[in-house]
Design a binder for these strands. Sequence first.
DNA 1: AATATAATCAATAATGATTATCAATAAAGA
DNA 2: TCTTTATTGATAATCATTATTGATTATATT
Lengths: 145, 145
Amino acid sequence: MSVPDSRFDQLISALKEHNFRLTPQRVELVRLIAVSEGHPSASQLHAKIKRKFPTMSHATVYKTLSLLKEINQVLEIDLRDDSHYDGNRPDPHPHLICVNCNKIIDGELLIDQQSIQRMEQESGYKILRPQISFYGLCPDCKEEN
Amino acid sequence: MSVPDSRFDQLISALKEHNFRLTPQRVELVRLIAVSEGHPSASQLHAKIKRKFPTMSHATVYKTLSLLKEINQVLEIDLRDDSHYDGNRPDPHPHLICVNCNKIIDGELLIDQQSIQRMEQESGYKILRPQISFYGLCPDCKEEN
DNA sequence: AATATAATCAATAATGATTATCAATAAAGA
DNA sequence: TCTTTATTGATAATCATTATTGATTATATT
Ligand SMILES: [Mn+2]
Ligand SMILES: [Mn+2]
Ligand SMILES: [Zn+2]
Ligand SMILES: [Zn+2]
């Protein structure tokens, strides 16, 4: 009977398995991304990390994130201005994005696998990664109008 | 019995209706975007326009595109590095995007309106604009591997 | 423990798309 | 033709991301 790993432990394990060094900076970023409810951006993560590591640069945040992306432990969400990251659900899934305050939450949407296959056949494309973004207004910003 | 307007005529009419001035630069951009099979970016359009208007600046391209967006005659497709535009189908629709050569084509995918509504209700978000992008490999780039 | 090697860090500059500014120009209506 | 004012285009600014590079640190080996 084993206790299920926390997301933090999973991320740390993944780094170890790939023989990446566990630097204090990386551990802290992993902690933050595992704890984060929302979908933080690189600069938001950088701002938080600076509390513990005042000298940490943007480049290190970006490099660590792209490293976690490579080993499929983080999902990158491309927005117009920057990218946000989901360290809790690394597999592609839909998002609801507020165009006013940028609040991002997961969206549950069943994607018909049949239709995807048909699209692949008709187009000849090999689909690797769907990105489904629903831009709109979050509950709070809906009211303000 | 009237002949159906060409896409070019539709776009010109839309500009007139909104009392935007018909400058030669705008007419040329409209012509290009109505003729373009693919989904050109701002800088690709700028490069083509420079043949006729060597002094045309990036800013003018961007301003004209955002103007056409405002009157819902152009769909903007946000990619990681830049935006591409569809002047022929201004309403949101899925796209297949090659991660290797950036070739973009329309994707036909039936989106279950029921599921969208359920997502709105469960999340409280008001969805304004869905953007569905399937990243993958186009037929040509599929072979190269 | 000391050394060699490679990984990582952080400061800095570079890149590239997009936007802002503003004086000069030209479209459209009188 | 004249007037009004939207539009243009040159330029600079902004901002996220990436590249560079020398310094620092971890790891393996002796
Ligand atoms: Mn998510
Ligand atoms: Mn399209
Ligand atoms: Zn909001
Ligand atoms: Zn391709």
